[in-house]
Computed example of a mutant assay.
Amino acid sequence: MTNKSHEADVAFIQALAELLRENDLTELQVKRAYAEDDSLNVRVSRAAPQVNVAPVQVAAPVAAAPTAAAAPAAAPAPVSDDPADLPGAVTSPMVGTVYLQAEPGSPSFVSVGATVSEGDTLLIVEAMKTMNHIPAPRAGKVTRILVEDGSTVEFGAPLVVIE
Rank of each mutant, 00 (worst) to 15 (best):
M1P: 14
N3T: 13
S5M: 07
S5R: 14
H6D: 03
H6V: 15
H6C: 14
H6L: 15
E7M: 11
D9N: 15
D9G: 07
A11W: 09
F12D: 03
I13H: 11
Q14M: 08
Q14L: 14
Q14F: 08
Q14P: 02
Q14S: 11
A17F: 02
E18P: 00
L20M: 12
E22H: 09
N23K: 14
N23E: 15
N23G: 08
N23Y: 06
T26V: 04
E27L: 07
Q29F: 10
R32C: 03
R32G: 04
R32E: 07
R32Y: 13
Y34A: 11
A35H: 13
D37R: 10
D38H: 15
D38G: 13
S39F: 14
N41L: 13
V42A: 12
V44F: 02
S45E: 14
A47P: 00
A48Q: 08
Q50K: 08
Q50V: 13
V51Y: 08
V51H: 14
N52L: 15
V53A: 15
A54L: 07
A54I: 04
P55V: 12
P55T: 10
Q57F: 15
V58W: 01
V58H: 00
A59E: 14
A59V: 04
A60H: 01
A60Q: 15
A60W: 02
V62L: 14
A64S: 14
A65V: 04
A69P: 00
A69R: 07
A70E: 06
A71W: 09
P72W: 01
A75I: 15
P78Y: 11
P78L: 12
V79D: 06
V79P: 00
S80N: 14
D82E: 12
D82Y: 10
A84Y: 05
A84I: 04
A89W: 04
P93H: 08
M94L: 15
M94H: 03
M94Y: 11
V95P: 08
V95K: 07
G96L: 07
T97K: 15
T97V: 11
Y99L: 13
Y99G: 03
L100V: 01
P104D: 13
P107F: 05
S108K: 13
F109R: 05
V112E: 11
V116E: 12
E118R: 13
G119E: 03
G119C: 14
D120M: 04
T121Y: 07
L122K: 05
L122V: 02
L122D: 06
L123H: 10
L123G: 09
L123D: 06
V125S: 01
V125T: 12
V125F: 06
V125P: 09
E126N: 12
M128I: 02
T130D: 09
N132K: 04
H133G: 02
H133Q: 13
H133L: 02
I134V: 04
I134Y: 06
I134T: 00
P135I: 00
A136F: 02
P137T: 01
A139R: 06
A139E: 10
V142Q: 06
R144F: 06
I145C: 01
I145A: 05
V147Y: 10
V147M: 12
V147G: 09
V147L: 03
V147W: 05
E148D: 15
G150W: 05
G150A: 03
E154R: 10
E154Y: 03
G156A: 01
G156F: 09
P158T: 10
L159T: 09
L159G: 06
V160I: 14
V160W: 01
V161D: 08
V161L: 07
V161E: 12
V161N: 07
I162A: 10
E163L: 03
